[in-house]
């Protein structure tokens, strides 16, 4: 019995050793791991980062840029284990793509000084020189979209379907309200207290439209529920975080796309120079991280509207417009 057991142990050791050889051989490959609360195709926050990584991979070549990811890590305890596992496995960059992962990063990063960690929407790198934080200045896009929505609304009533009053969802909505108010529109906002409840998001959109708002916007992974109502009632939708046009090509006017490639380029570039963190990054119109994607393929959009949006974005870049109200 003990002989059999010894042989088994030996077999396991041999297999483990063999499995570790490719990892050692692939040392030249830049390895990125991403932990996210939803899916890589959520038309939202997670997809925006995944697509940015794919862009970098296509530029560097699949052989020299490896991406692995863990989806549905809404449970912080699970996410923490995944982050630690990736660090253990020697990944060069571990991206914790959710504001709820902060304490995990703070706990794990000091144990792996050779690994770079990036946390979004992060607020603090905890004084650690291997942690970077990034977030979207969503209020900038929100302000411009508020003005766009006010311009296309026939009755001046706008609806916003939000998940929770925090993070970039809140800053986007605050910017939107400010932009719309300055353009003379009336904005109503609902929060569903959930990132995933598509049914409630659908009911929220229906309520906005019952009260006369035909132009709606919203953010989170549950927005397909709201977009389905807008599509059914032939309203207009302004998408955020990723391209939502495929959800309703006849009803999505424009999407505010988060393009994380400028920030990832900077983080990876710094790593090449031996700087693994200790910095905060913002996604803005100025660095090209916030992009306005118009649905010109399916809708006849007035060029004046596009020019107005570009002009507003430029004024934000120039500091002539402050997207959020003072105080």
């Amino acid at each position: 019995m003990s002989k059999k057991f010894s042989i088994m142990i030996l077999f396991v050791c041999v297999v483990m050793t063999l499995l570790s050889v490719p990892v050692l051989a692939e040392d030249e490959v830049f390895q990125v791991a991403m932990v996210m609360p939803s899916k890589i195709n959520d038309y939202s926050f997670s997809q925006s980062m995944y697509e940015a990584l794919k862009v970098l991979q296509s530029e560097a070549g699949e052989d020299s840029f490896e991406i692995v990811y863990s989806e549905d890590m809404f449970n912080v305890a699970d996410a923490r284990e995944a982050i630690r596992d990736y660090a253990d496995m020697g990944f060069d960059l571990v991206i914790a793509h959710g504001s709820q992962y902060g304490t995990s990063i703070q706990e794990i990063a000091p144990d792996y000084p050779e690994t770079a960690f990036a946390w979004g929407n992060g607020t603090d790198f905890f004084g650690l020189d291997n942690v970077s934080v990034y977030q979207a200045s969503a209020e900038q896009g929100g302000y411009v979209f508020g003005q766009i929505a006010a311009a296309v609304s026939e009755n001046g009533k706008l609806g916003v379907c939000g998940p929770v009053e925090s993070g970039d969802a809140k800053t986007y909505i605050d910017g939107f309200k400010n932009g719309a108010a300055e353009a003379g529109a009336e904005v109503s906002v609902t929060y569903t207290s959930s990132f995933s409840d598509v049914s409630l998001m659908s009911a929220a959109a229906e309520t906005h439209m019952d009260e006369g708002a035909m132009v709606l916007t919203g953010t989170s992974q549950s927005i397909p529920g709201a977009v389905s109502v807008v599509k059914e009632r032939d309203g207009l939708w302004l998408g955020v975080q990723w391209d939502t046009i495929p959800l309703a090509p006849e009803n999505v006017l424009v999407s505010l796309v988060y393009d994380w490639t400028p920030i990832l380029d900077e983080i990876i570039g710094n790593m090449a120079e031996g700087v693994y963190g200790g910095a905060a990054y913002d996604l803005t119109f100025e660095n090209g991280g916030l992009q306005i994607l118009w649905n010109t393929e399916n809708l006849d959009i007035d060029q004046e509207l596009i020019d107005m949006a570009d002009d507003l974005a430029q004024k934000i870049v120039d500091g002539e417009i402050v997207p959020l109200p003072a105080g």
């Binding site: 899916k39 959930s194 995933s196 409840d197 598509v198 049914s199 409630l200 659908s202 549950s222 397909p224 529920g225 389905s228 059914e232």
Partner: peptide
């Protein structure tokens, strides 16, 4: 008969 799409965990505790 309501949202007319499918998404994972869409029943959300119903």
């Amino acid at each position: 008969a309501n949202i007319n799409m499918f998404q994972e965990k869409m029943t959300n505790g119903t």
